[in-house]
Design a protein around this nucleic acid. Sequence first.
DNA 1: CTATAAACCTGCTGGC
DNA 2: TGCCAGCAGGTTTATA
Length: 270
Amino acid sequence: MPELPEVETIRRRLDPHVVGRTIAGLAVFDARVSEQSEAELRRLLVGARIVATGRRGKWLTLDLGERLMIVHLRMTGQLLLQPDHAQKGPRWTMDLDDGRRLWFYDQRRFGTLEVIGVDAAAERFGDMGVEPLSAEFGVAALRAQLAGRSAPLKAFLLDQRRLAGVGNIYADEVLFRARLHPLRKAGGVGPREAQRLHAAIIATLELAIEHEGSSVESFVDPAGERGSFQEILNVYQRTGAPCRVCGTPIKRVVISGRGTHFCPRCQRRR
DNA sequence: CTATAAACCTGCTGGC
DNA sequence: TGCCAGCAGGTTTATA
């Protein structure tokens, strides 16, 4: 599942290949990828120059000056700089003026593509919470979000309106690092615990970016390279395996409909 | 307001 | 061996 570290890895790898280029063509092979028609997408994209790459939470953006191209990979989306003949055809491809082509593969077909005017961008992302790796994300900001919420910490971390970019893998990894039980109520977290949670969110995401993401399912960067964070996961998908700190078997429960992994000894409920 | 569930989709797993 | 129900997951939409 591409979460913040995976999308950021893709953005960084894509950036030098696309910035400064002009979009020369677009082909949509699966109309369900966008609410906009192929003709409309073409009208909005072809001829536009890519000024910058960006990311908001798990959304990848291409800044076209007047417009913003927005891509979400959801579960299995891949943006590649070369075709992958081992999988079903791409849902769309985009040609650049230097002859390069971008391929969007997406086995489960949940990914999306949209193009909006740059003036609509603020509203488009208006519901999204703070970027956890930005300067605005301080302990005070986190405590303000936690305060008064009855939701379990696991659900809190997954809520994109509070914090943008954390998904199921990193929510579990963050809570292990912070030594907090995933069922603890957000509002019941004390000041020292909030401090630990804040540090764990930043440290986990930064470490995952250093490792170029987690390839637990189908994640690869635009060159088709896998990340390596899956090799050092502490809890995610390690049900029954010994905790790397204390040796206790990792437990799996379902919280808010999501598989949740934790160490029952390192992450006491109270 | 919050909170939970269903829908979207397909490859894989487990049970019979 | 084969079939099929069930599961995974991010976001949106619907319902309680």
